[in-house]
Design a protein around this nucleic acid. Structure first.
Lengths: 227, 227
DNA sequence: TGAGTCCGTCTTACGTCGTAAGGCTGACTT
DNA sequence: AAGTCAGCCTTACGACGTAAGACGGACTCA
């Protein structure tokens, strides 16, 4: 029982660790990303990861880096448009398309507290577009705040996630119970159909809603920039 | 050593548990809110809490209820204004004032997945205001999405928290390192002073920035409503 | 008065997490 | 041939949420 094949396993690396983490997040969500689980995926022990990653926080930062690399690559591939507004719109919606491939991304980005270079660079390009459209630095600064996370392609919804209610009727039933307490919402929901099966991120934050809000803000900015 | 005073401690209750949890969050942040810590604060064991609270998730929901009760109370105290826009503005900024007393609130609200009645009721009143301003249900619905978490008085910032960089120069130094990679941001930051000591929630999401974005959206909505 | 019920609390214990401390091994120097 | 050290593993600790059930005292009903 001596001459077992010595298992020529590929050595670990920060890149492999991060990539494995992203795969786990894609498959089973952010909470499934644990050191032990990553270790398993790579055929190593959890503690071995610490040679390539300082700690869990650094790991999550690294995941953001991987994500943002994918996002920046997609966004930089875009053909140049002269109109700043169309360019920003396109850029942001492209970013959103990338995020839709990683449903865990909004939660992760919101939770991150450190500034990652790739995120900074992304916003720099947005400011560049606005400058090309005649924005003052001050207005561009305001614009970033107004867009908030929408600049990156998502917006946090209060009643959000897909994992909210196991049965889709639960929300409706609760609203029915509250009906006389919330007459305005009840009326609104009666009129606005919420059962769009194409709902992408969150409750009814689907593509149309995202674009509506985005255009509302871009139009407002355009008016201010034109003054 | 027999006749020790029998410690006439006040019995636990859901309300006491939730109130203790909020106090802990106010004092030491959301991560400090653990079952054992709440138990300590109440002179009880962690497991005793489970008689009054289903689980940790239910506890967090309960914290949201306490918070939103405080918020709704503050907001309903407002004097009636005929102008829907001024009323919404006032209402939202009042909500924000309450949230500023509980820095952990945005993170908690974002993380919550279940619909709490108090949150629903809050939004119902907003829709009511918009209806009074001539909004269609459809436009009011869009408006809620456009406002996002801003409707509740906060907006998530990508480079956010107070706990981000121990030394306030770290961010600036990193940007300096990236300077040639992010010329637009570097220019912007050189011009826009970010060292506002009154920064409230987050990096530079201070009151003026919040109001700028809020007014931008409200103005845009007003234009759409007027059509 | 005594037995049964049950509410409220505590005890003990399990499995999970992140990670500190240090041991082993094989490749590379010198 | 001896020493160094990068890379991985073993063991262990202290958090966490919480399942299972024991315990005590108040209450009900005979």
């Amino acid at each position: 029982m001596a001459s077992q094949a010595p298992a020529p396993r590929t050595p670990l690396s920060r890149d492999r660790v991060l990539r494995a983490a992203v795969e786990i997040a894609d498959a089973d969500g952010l909470d499934a990303v644990t050191m032990r689980r990553i270790g398993d995926a790579l055929g190593a022990e959890a503690m071995s990861l610490y040679y390539h990653v300082a700690n869990k926080n650094d790991l999550l930062d690294g995941i953001v880096d991987v994500l943002m690399a994918e996002l920046n690559e997609a966004v930089d591939r875009l053909t140049v448009v002269t109109d700043w507004k169309a360019a920003m719109r396109h850029r942001i919606l492209t970013a959103r398309a990338v995020l839709l491939r990683h449903p865990w991304a909004p939660r992760l980005l919101e939770s991150r507290t450190t500034m990652r270079p790739a995120v900074v660079i992304y916003h720099d390009r947005l400011v560049g577009l606005m400058r090309s459209g005649g924005f003052s630095y001050d207005l561009a600064h305001h614009a970033l705040h107004a867009l908030g996370s929408r600049a990156l392609g998502f917006s946090q919804e209060l009643f959000d996630p897909a994992d909210a209610s196991p049965n889709p009727d639960a929300d409706a039933r609760m609203l029915a119970d509250l009906a006389e307490q919330v007459p305005n919402l009840a009326g609104m929901l009666a009129e606005v159909a919420h059962d769009d099966p194409d709902s992408t991120i969150g409750w009814c934050d689907d593509q149309q809603e995202f674009e509506f809000a985005l255009d509302l803000i871009l139009d407002g900015l355009a008016r201010l920039a034109a003054r």
